[in-house]
Design a protein around this nucleic acid. Structure first.
Lengths: 232, 232
DNA sequence: AAATAAGTTTTGGCAATCCTAATTTCAATG
DNA sequence: CATTGAAATTAGGATTGCCAAAACTTATTT
């Protein structure tokens, strides 16, 4: 039995890069320099520089002009950070009553400073949650996640009944608006109509008080992940 | 009525310097380069460099070869950080059941990342505590503290009865040992004996189960602050 | 006053991260 | 196969923070 090697502490920026690459890789292909740059709002040139350092540290493998992939170590580090981030989000929401749209930003800052110890105490206080307030799965202590491939609300067809599983968490304004509409993980929707030419999607929100009809633009609908529950 | 100017966010190291200078200034004289260096465990050369930047930012005033003093802005910033630190310590101890000797290190990391918002939510959850687990006073939101000048246990005379008000918090090992002895803020001691030549101080610890006699070296006793409660 | 000890500052460097501008590479097109 | 446009990389700089070693100031001692 090999002792699990103590993961050396990474800097904040390094953790951010690894998270971004992890996320970009989820769709299958390696993460491109530009995508990483967009995601982190820094210049592509800076990404080139950092990617070399990450490769030197064995956290990613880099094929020039082809993109970046996490190594085993890199992936484990990314998942540790993701676990910290998502447990922090749960804790801020459930225990400290943080508003839905603010938890992401706060967790983003805390995740680099919080120790495993602290995060595990929070997880225990919450009874080891399995998903964060936006529906994202929380990696286990030993680095397992089940990242389900979900369709977005923008892809659902009229007549379908769906359950919202997850929503994007980066933009507070959009989150506040979704909350207003009553659309949040776990809620049930029926797709009533989908206007042509990328027009709005009209849905029936079961869980709103007495149910309600709402129109959602495609841009927003593309950030809402759903799971099919049947046809009307 | 002037609007309180939004304090710009400071970097972690800057906050650490300000806290150190605040602490060193408490004894009256300006903080010397070497003292700051010792406190932060960095070289005097680095302190010189940083002190210039702090002075440029108007956070400290610096008389070369004479020492450093916080300006009004610097003092306010130091107290904000101190408030964050101490509330975090309370929260970790009371809500998350952190062991006494570990809260300082965790709070030290979190204080630079936690927002006012988060800290105020924690303070509210605790009912606005006025002192941290080691007995240090918590500055109010508007930057008031009552830093009482206390004697140390090393200065107490045999026959005195004292109440422990505060203990140094930086060294986990010493804190664990003090906890073992039953010496913590709020507890009552009677000084039984003080051996010559900086020898140990023998005390009767009221609050230990059934009371107990303990011998404490001067080094440790100098880190325990007490308030007189009478003579035997 | 001169010498010395103690403390402080300056100098010159290094590492991590970021930037802009210029250059190189890849792949697609005429 | 030469051109071209997009994407990526390198070059050259800035900033924040840190350090070790050299140079300097102050204060004390002879």
């Amino acid at each position: 039995m090999t002792a699990s090697p103590e993961p050396q502490p990474l800097t904040g920026p390094v953790e951010d890069y690894l998270k971004a690459i992890y996320d970009l890789e989820l769709v299958g292909s390696p993460a491109s320099t530009n995508d990483i740059a967009d995601r982190l709002a820094i210049s592509p040139a800076s990404v080139s520089g950092m990617v070399r350092r990450l490769a030197d540290q064995g956290l990613v493998s880099h094929e020039p002009y082809r993109g970046v992939r996490l190594t085993g170590d890199g992936r484990r580090a990314a998942l540790r950070t993701l676990r910290r981030h998502r447990i922090l989000e749960c804790y801020l929401t459930e225990v400290l009553q943080y508003p839905w749209d603010q938890v992401h930003a706060e967790a983003e800052r805390l995740e680099h400073a919080a120790s495993e110890e602290l995060v595990e105490r929070m997880a225990a206080a919450l009874g080891d949650p399995v998903q964060d307030p936006h529906g994202a799965p929380i990696p286990t202590r030993d680095g397992r996640v089940e990242e389900s491939t979900l369709r977005t609300l923008a892809e659902a067809a009229p007549g379908e009944q769906v359950r919202v599983r997850r929503v994007h968490d980066k933009e507070p304004a959009r989150l506040r608006y979704l909350a207003e509409l009553g659309i949040r993980p776990g809620c049930h929707l029926r797709i009533l109509d989908k206007a042509p030419f990328d027009g709005p999607i009209t849905v029936w929100v079961e869980d709103a008080v007495g149910g309600a009809t709402r129109a959602v633009g495609v841009g927003l609908a593309a950030q809402v992940y759903v799971e099919s529950e049947g046809q009307a």
